[in-house]
C-alpha cells in the first residue's frame, strides 16, 4: 500500500510493511515548517497506529532541534523507545542526534531494510 500525505510536501511517500509504517521525509525542516511536519506525522500515527515507524531521512539535508523534537514526540505517540527508526541520515542530522544523545531513543540504521529486520 502506498499513499501520499495531502498535508505536506515534507513527507514524500508512505507505505506499510507488515506492522511497520515507512515514511520518507524530504527537504529542510526547521522552526518555520516543523509544526507542519508535526501535524502530518501525528496524523499518520493516529490513522495507522503502527507498531514501528521507520522514517527515511536520506533527502533531509538539514534538520534543526525543533524537527528533532517533533521526532521525539513521534516516539511518545508510537509508544516506546526504539520503535521509531531513523534511516539514511545525512552527516549533519546524525551529528545533531549524537550531540543531543538521542541515539537511545531512536533506532538509527543505515537503510530501511535494516530497520525492518531489527
Amino acid at each position: 500500500m502506498s499513499e501520499r500525505t495531502i498535508r505536506t510536501n515534507l513527507i514524500s511517500s508512505v507505505r506499510k510493511n507488515g506492522d511497520a509504517l515507512v515514511a520518507s521525509i524530504i527537504g529542510e525542516v526547521d522552526l518555520g515548517n516543523s509544526p507542519v511536519l508535526r501535524a502530518a506525522l501525528m496524523d499518520l500515527i493516529a490513522r495507522h497506529a503502527p507498531k514501528k515507524l521507520i522514517l527515511n531521512l536520506r533527502h533531509v539535508q538539514y534538520m534543526d532541534s525543533s524537527a528533532i523534537a517533533v521526532l521525539v514526540e513521534a516516539v511518545r505517540k508510537v509508544g516506546k523507545p526504539g520503535q521509531v527508526a531513523l534511516t539514511d541520515l545525512q552527516p549533519r542530522v546524525k551529528g545533531l542526534l549524537e550531540i543531543a544523545r538521542l541515539d537511545t531513543i531512536f533506532q538509527i540504521t543505515g537503510t530501511e531494510q535494516e530497520a525492518l529486520e531489527k
Binding site: 516543523s34 525543533s66 523534537a69
Partner: peptide, 16 residues
Amino acid sequence: LPEETIDIMVKIKLEL
C-alpha cells in the same frame, strides 16, 4: 511552536 515541542527542545538544549 506548541509547548510540547518547546518542552522537548529545552530538554535537548539542556542535555547538550
